[in-house]
Write a protein that binds this DNA or RNA. Structure first.
Lengths: 110, 110
DNA sequence: ACCTTGTGCAACCTGTTGGTTGCACATTGT
DNA sequence: ACAATGTGCAACCAACAGGTTGCACAAGGT
């Protein structure tokens, strides 16, 4: 529904693929890289990497910069915060539920 | 490669589906629920929910408990920590890279 | 015993996804 | 001008994922 939900959806969808996570990892370690460079270190073709970079871009995790004839991609990890936030929510609600349960049990024991 | 990587993979794969996230959300808010109960609140069939619960189970995010003729599922959110860890890693490496870059730029300016 | 309710399993359909190849277009160096 | 290198786009393909229906089986309630 909300804009944030769509964001979370895009981020999780983007992170669901190992190759994509690998690309993010490399972009985290190297300042920036082109699709061809990334493909050189991966067991897939350049075009496959391009597609992955596109979905990563849609999730806001990566940003392209044209530099002459090549396009360099850099990491923009802010959206990861949304995903972490979602998990924190689920965990927090669960923890609260657990705490309440413990309180109830304690009360019953007393 | 590592066992942890497989775990991370399973968790992200599990979280990549909106219905599955919705199921997790409901399980976080309610102590436990059966597949039929969950399906009642969702726009999909019971069998679809069962499948989702299975993949969530494979990721270690959910645990079934037989209770008479019905099977109740409860949340086991620990594996979320692995996913958060992965994201923290990427973010951290990126931050470190950024910090180093800033230091270099500062040094160059001087 | 019988009906009801909940679960398990299998077959099946459809859309999507990750991947490929092929080719055209743009840019840089000589 | 020309060769080399990098990118963009499109068609195509196999596999998978989410979903459905149908039916058999197990467990409680009456």
């Amino acid at each position: 529904m909300t804009r944030r939900d769509e964001r979370v959806d895009a981020v999780f969808a983007a992170l669901s693929d190992p190759t994509r996570r690998s690309v993010l990892g490399r972009l985290a370690r190297h300042p920036s890289a082109s699709a061809t460079e990334l493909a050189a270190d991966l067991p897939v073709s350049r075009q496959a990497v391009v597609k992955h970079l596109q979905t990563l871009g849609l999730a806001g995790l990566v940003a392209p910069t044209r530099q002459g004839r090549e396009v360099r991609y850099s990491l923009t990890p802010e959206p990861l915060g949304d995903a972490v936030g979602w998990m924190a929510d689920v965990g927090a609600v669960w923890d609260e539920r657990l705490a309440r349960l413990q309180r109830q049990l304690r009360a019953r024991k007393a």
